[in-house]
Design a protein around this nucleic acid. Sequence first.
DNA 1: CAAATCATGTAATGTGTTACATGATTCG
DNA 2: CGAATCATGTAACACATTACATGATTTG
Lengths: 182, 182
Amino acid sequence: MSIRYAILGFLSANPLSGYDLKKLFEESSVFHWSGNNNQVYRTLVELHNEGLVTQEVQQQADYPARKIYTITEKGLAELRQWVLSEPELPQIKSSFLVQLAWADQLEADALDDLLRKYDAEIHDQLIVVQEHKRRSKTSPQRTPREAYLWEAIMDNKILYYETELNWVRTVRETLNEMGKDK
Amino acid sequence: MSIRYAILGFLSANPLSGYDLKKLFEESSVFHWSGNNNQVYRTLVELHNEGLVTQEVQQQADYPARKIYTITEKGLAELRQWVLSEPELPQIKSSFLVQLAWADQLEADALDDLLRKYDAEIHDQLIVVQEHKRRSKTSPQRTPREAYLWEAIMDNKILYYETELNWVRTVRETLNEMGKDK
DNA sequence: CAAATCATGTAATGTGTTACATGATTCG
DNA sequence: CGAATCATGTAACACATTACATGATTTG
């Protein structure tokens, strides 16, 4: 999947500029792109060439001009079609699990330190998404059902981090138990 | 993180050929690379140039020659250092959540269908990793602690899919409840 | 006899990040 | 007065996938 459908999605709620989209991606944890300019601006040019969006230049006094992109009928159709396409499995890249796989060479306390740091990182991130859900600004919320869907998406993230946190704590405890036996 | 540490990790247990590594990546769900030739063979050449592995060509009657790679002291040192490096947050790319975000345009039954398909996919994958854990072939298992670490890694995956499955079922039920009200 | 396996490798393309570049304005 | 914000865009590079290519052997 590429960023194009996420962009079409945002535009289906509101016309936006590249800069707006960039910020939406930066702020969001669900839309996993970093919000780098290169990708956003290039994709908008592509979508424009394909006639999925229209462009309107908005002049502003004392500020750079904004290019406002609006989704077309064709763009809406493409989005609708993609939303109906076969769901894919989430792709998880956990460099931490790879580290753990070869962590047997470490001393007990170095390993515990690693787990402690991972615990802290996950915990921080959990706070971030919980806070995010409370504010829930990214959501268009046009209908009650849409509001629920966005809430469910946030809950998915929260559940993930909660599960991860429980897991790492169990692992730490078990390893410490094992350490005592030696 | 790049594939190089995963390769060094596998080589720290056993000398292997590029083809062996490719298959390990293909079979594994934890090591998230697809096992494409390009990356594996190129990375091995790089590691060889940097002196982190040595290469030995093994001639075989009736089969193509294999290039067996063995990790060097320098390679082991680099691996050890990486294992101690700051753990990173897992990167999750869920195109399904992006689909859901814009799924309010769908009819109730089309949306339910989407959720049902996701449920099925996750369920299948859960079976795969559970089976994987039972066989647990990828693991070198040199010490009891290492055996536990590999088990914990498998459990992490299993917990993830279980949580995901519970989540999608709750979402489906809630949406069906909401549908009745109409 | 077709397909899969063994084993290597390259080409083309997709996807994503960081850093660079510009230039005015506003905020601390 | 330095840093951040607004707003656009490009260059270079990192990481990853699919497909192509070869050629013998084994399995269904």
